[in-house]
Computed example of a mutant assay.
Amino acid sequence: MNDEGRSAAIAVPSTPERSANERAILNMLRQDGPTPAAEIARRMGLSAQSASVITRKLEAEGLVLRGSPVRGKIGKPSTPIQLDPAGAFAIGLRIGRRRSDLILIDLEGRVLGQKTATYAYPTPASCLDLARAGLAEFKQMLSADQHERIAGIGIGMPFDLWNWLDLLGAPRAEMQAWHDFPAQDAFAEATGLPAFVGNDGSLACHGEHLFGGARHLPDFGYIFVGAFLGGGIVLDGRLYLGAGGNAGALASLPVPGADGRMTQMLEVASIHQLERRLEARMPGNGQRLLQQPAWAGFDDLEATWIEETARQLASATVTLVAVLDLPSVVIDGSFPAEVRQKLIARVETLVAQVDTRGIRRPQIVSGTLGITACALGAGYRPIVARYLVE
């Protein structure tokens, strides 16, 4: 994706107009669950009549449902109003180094279907094929009327893929195809849906904020350790993208390498580095070993990798806090839960040893979504754009 494509990646397609009050009510129901009409009116600062008119309109459009009346100690029973999960759907695509994941989600963010493609390295053609084939399969799960409720497709991908030839192990000509690839337009044309393209780290952060362990954190930094190293930032409850859509690009932070020369953090803190060492010891088995539900058979390499990666993440954590005054940093990755626990425990120990005079030592929070976070965050972008508050 070239600079032109990156600009498109932080813009969003035009979406149908929806009033601010409608969006605010839908947003509240998404965050807080079933809520009585009187409480909606109170919290939105609306009259009971105005709130009733809006909720009945949303109900008629199939976006909300009325639950069973709940009788309190006094007064009339209250009827809770909640999102209708089938009120909207969206497609989320995560493009990774070795695999891509496509999911179908509903208005509440529940995953209804998933399709995965593995490859030696990603190409625009293979990713477009996955989107087309997956959409066709997902539509078979929905009624014809529900097809019209698919809000769009969101795509999370590393920016500047052509610059990572050494990590991808791909021919230069194949990766150069990404340089001139108009991602937003290409996916829109391939699927017939509005397309929203963003950085994979930022969208994983978005997914964790909406549906994971960071759901109730208004301000935090996010670090995701995968084949690449990614990150994201949430400020005042909103995903912060930066001027170029690439805020939180921790992979590019300059750090000392093993030889003392400056390199990028990606080169010393990513699963790709562990895969390299596994391949050197057991050629042809690195990827297989790392795809185990529980890592086994390379305890010494795992321990060394956790120590080295934890030191880099501790440094990145303190940097995020020093620059943005963040109270929390969420850490996750595409590894087993046990590995995540070990890594976070070591990061916490190392951060506690850092001289943090002048800043507040942050809370380290465990992510909960793993590799699903990016596809979820990407998929929910079209729903947010059409129905909710950014």
Rank of each mutant, 00 (worst) to 15 (best):
S7T: 06
P13D: 00
S19Q: 02
S19V: 04
A20N: 09
A24G: 13
P36E: 06
G45Y: 00
S52D: 15
I54W: 08
A60P: 09
P69S: 07
K73P: 07
S78G: 07
Q82F: 08
A90L: 05
G92P: 07
G96A: 02
I103D: 07
I103R: 07
L107P: 08
L107H: 08
L107Y: 14
G109D: 03
L112V: 01
Y121M: 03
L128Q: 02
L130N: 01
A133F: 10
A133H: 14
L135E: 15
F138G: 14
F138W: 02
A144W: 10
A144K: 14
R149A: 04
M157F: 12
M157N: 12
W162A: 11
L165D: 13
L167P: 09
D180F: 15
P182Q: 08
Q184G: 01
E189M: 12
N199T: 10
D200N: 03
S202Y: 04
L203S: 00
C205W: 00
H206F: 13
E208Q: 04
L210E: 03
F211E: 09
G213N: 02
H216D: 15
F220K: 00
F220G: 08
V225F: 06
G231P: 11
I233C: 14
V234F: 00
V234E: 10
L241V: 06
N246F: 09
G257S: 05
A258V: 04
D259P: 01
M262D: 10
E275C: 14
E279D: 14
L289I: 03
Q292H: 11
P293G: 10
P293T: 00
A294R: 13
L301G: 08
L301K: 05
W305T: 06
L313G: 11
A322E: 11
D325V: 02
L326K: 01
D332I: 05
R340K: 15
Q353V: 08
V354Q: 14
D355E: 06
T356V: 09
A373E: 07
L376C: 03
G377D: 07
G379I: 00
I383W: 14
